[in-house]
Amino acid sequence: MEYPDRHSATIFSSNLLANFERLGGQRFCTEALPTSQRLEWLKEVIGREYANVDVGTPDQMYLYNDMLIYFWSQGMRLSPIRSNAITIERLPKEPEHISQDCYFGVLLTRGQYKLEQGGREVFLKPGEMTIYDATEPHRVTTPGPFSKILISIPRSLLDERIANISRLTATRLSTVHGAGAITASMISSTVNQLEQLDQASFQALSEPVLELFTLSLQQVVGKTKQMSHHRSQALIRVKQFIARNLTDTDLKAEVIASAMGLSVRYINNLFNEEDTSLMRYLTQQRLARSRHYLASSLYSHLSITEVAMQSGFSNMSHFSRVFHLTYGMSPRAYRYHYPNDHGV
């Protein structure tokens, strides 16, 4: 079992816990609950405060999660979070509260963090940032103890500043130089200086943090636009070809490259600009389709094997393994867990 680092917990307490009530914050911690009740309690809290999710922990792992929520102006929220290893997956269910219709900016401060959304995945190291849409399917995986700072930003605040944010989710926002470095530093400094801030000063920081985070996203948009029109059109054609032929169990990298008149290496370079690869993208699309089939009553007549085949998988053991790795349960358990759900 892994327990939270006591030294880190002490720092967490001295910097934050003494100030969250003074600044109008809330605390949700598993520590006072019996072990047997922690998982369901945490799932309920995250579902109420952030998004409708399923929560899991590695076998025999001690569940510990401590989150603080500070309310900022314009509906924004600042949430320092400490936790042991955990998996969080967005359930196919519409937001229940207006506060859940938002984007989450993430600054990892300790441990490792994997985020999957929109067919992309990003692996964060301490000091790195990313963003995701709270209302869209996503999966967060952390293999060990970690700490992060979560910034909740109402959808309207970002949508009016940046168009088509969905193309930026689950991508790494550079914190090495430029706007990203300043943004990460300011977010971290804000949390570290909470004990020195009065309510008015704390509230005044929400707007500059929002503007800096917007600049960090625009920095990524600028790099994305550097892809030439020819390369972007080539990537679109590859994705369209994959979508049309997804059920073909013989669809491999070489087949796709031959059909498109491109090399496998060139196609992988195209996908590298979205932080993925050709075969990883193909597998993700097949998994997404199988997940949709398993959760929809329209395909309840299909057996698990038929679902796999119609999603392009020819090897059942491979299908079961990658499905479980991605969604945290077997295909059969997933169908049982989300019966007749049209919302996937």
Rank of each mutant, 00 (worst) to 15 (best):
E2W: 02
H7N: 13
I11A: 11
S13I: 04
A18S: 11
R22I: 03
G24D: 01
R27I: 01
T30F: 03
T30K: 05
L33E: 00
P34A: 14
L39P: 02
E44G: 03
R48H: 10
Y50L: 14
A51G: 04
A51P: 02
V53S: 02
D54W: 05
V55T: 04
V55F: 05
G56V: 02
G56P: 02
L63P: 04
N65Q: 10
M67D: 03
Y70M: 14
F71R: 14
W72K: 07
R77K: 13
L78N: 05
L78V: 05
R82M: 04
I88A: 05
E89L: 09
E89T: 15
E89K: 12
L91K: 15
L91N: 12
P95H: 08
Y103H: 11
V106R: 06
L107K: 13
T109D: 05
R110D: 13
F123I: 10
T130R: 06
T130N: 09
Y132N: 11
D133H: 15
H138P: 00
T142D: 02
K148D: 14
K148I: 12
L150I: 15
L150S: 15
L150M: 14
S152F: 07
I153T: 15
R155H: 13
R155D: 08
R155P: 02
A163M: 11
I165W: 07
S166V: 06
L168D: 11
T169H: 04
T169A: 06
A170N: 03
A170K: 02
A170C: 08
A179C: 03
G180K: 06
A181M: 11
I182C: 04
S189M: 07
S189H: 08
T190E: 04
E195Q: 05
D198G: 02
A204Q: 14
A204V: 08
A204W: 04
L205R: 13
E207P: 01
L212I: 04
T214K: 07
Q219Y: 04
K223L: 14
K225W: 06
Q226E: 15
Q233L: 13
A234M: 11
V238Y: 02
F241D: 03
T247H: 12
T249L: 05
T249C: 11
K252S: 12
G261D: 02
L262D: 08
V264G: 07
R265M: 07
Y266R: 01
N268P: 02
L270Q: 08
N272A: 14
N272M: 10
L278F: 06
R280M: 09
T283S: 13
Q284K: 14
R289H: 02
H292V: 09
Y293G: 08
L294S: 03
L294F: 07
S297Q: 04
S300V: 06
H301P: 01
H301L: 07
L302E: 00
E306F: 05
E306A: 15
V307C: 15
S311D: 00
S317R: 15
F323L: 05
T326Y: 05
Y327I: 10
G328R: 08
A333F: 00
R335M: 00
Y338M: 01
H342N: 10
H342G: 08
